[in-house]
């Protein structure tokens, strides 16, 4: 068996607004569009993936929050309706997905070997979180690849950002080792926004783009700081700044997804490709790809 590899890593945020704006047949709510900059960014990410052959999508999601360790989906098929508890008017999505349970279990086992507390989720009635569905839909709307879904352990709340990051670095290493041992080619998704202070009201027409902007300038400046570090290939510096960034912008990086991704990719020192930056109800969202082949050039 040949050695498996991570063919690409991506920051792939999950505002349900982006699915709502696309009007896919799976979503019951319909729109007049909106958030084009981000949706076109996802188009560019999909274009960049069209040249890649991959077997599985591994997604780390903030909206499956766990407090006792990190959990992994351990059932092969899930088919149900996902209704967003925050934006039910926008996102009521009928999903039908396949899980690569073998790889899921391999990452779980590797993570356990490295000292992390882990658990397989084996209840077939479990409902998949809307973050996972949104990121996976926007990256692969055909849903023709199996996924591995990893919960976000919220150790930041119980300890601090530094401990969360240490654990996510271990989890990233465990993910990479499992992928390499599996012989599979994997796409990794960090399903999170950057700055994450929302508006607390919604326009009458949710896709009214005249109402959309970043919540405050502070968030914008911090988002640009982090994105520029990614563009410059300074991901270790970016991770070092992450606790401050997270605190200053109530960033969704608190869930650990991006730290996990950077670790799994071996902290890229090559340039990331920024496909888009835009806001959704005031939160900062970037669609960014890391192609390990660039490291080899």
């Amino acid at each position: 068996m040949s050695k498996g590899e991570i063919v690409m890593g991506a920051l792939a945020p999950h505002p349900p607004h982006l699915v709502y704006a696309e009007n896919p047949p799976q979503n019951e709510a319909t729109s007049e569009g909106g958030w084009e900059e981000l949706r076109w960014g996802y188009e560019r990410l999909r274009d960049s993936l069209s040249e890649k052959d991959y077997d599985v999508i591994i997604v780390h999601t903030p909206h499956w929050a766990t407090f006792v360790g990190t959990h992994f989906l351990g059932v092969e098929k899930f088919k149900s309706l996902s209704v967003d508890p925050i934006f039910p008017n926008l996102f009521r999505y009928n999903y039908d997905l396949t899980v690569d349970v073998e790889l899921s279990k391999a990452i779980h086992d590797n993570a356990a070997d490295s000292g992390l507390l882990v658990k397989m989720m084996e209840n077939p009635d479990f409902r998949i979180d809307y973050g996972t569905i949104t990121s996976c839909h926007l990256v692969n709307p055909k849903w023709d690849k199996p996924i591995v879904c990893i919960s976000s352990n919220r150790s930041k709340f119980y300890f601090n950002s530094e401990l969360m990051q240490a654990n996510m670095i271990k989890l990233g290493e465990a993910t990479r080792k499992a992928v390499e041992a599996s012989g599979k080619r994997a796409l990794l998704l960090s399903s999170n926004s950057l700055s994450h202070r929302h508006f607390t009201t919604e326009p009458e027409v949710p896709e009214d783009m005249s109402k959309e902007h970043v919540t405050n300038h502070n968030q914008y400046l911090w988002d640009m700081k982090m994105i520029n570090l990614m563009k410059d290939g300074k991901t270790k510096e970016m991770i070092d700044l992450m606790p401050d960034f997270t605190e200053q912008t109530v960033a969704e990086t608190e869930a650990g997804c991006l730290t996990w991704l950077m670790s799994a990719l071996g902290f890229p020192d090559y340039k990331a490709t920024v496909h888009a930056y835009g806001t959704v109800i005031g939160t900062g969202n970037a669609i960014i790809g890391w192609d390990p082949k660039k490291a080899k050039i």
Binding site: T66, E122, D125, D129, S151
Partner: peptide, 13 residues
């Protein structure tokens, strides 16, 4: 619905 808790899913539906 048939509900499963996201943390304590092993306790049942």
């Amino acid at each position: 619905w048939t509900y499963v808790d996201e943390e304590f899913h092993d306790l049942g539906s």
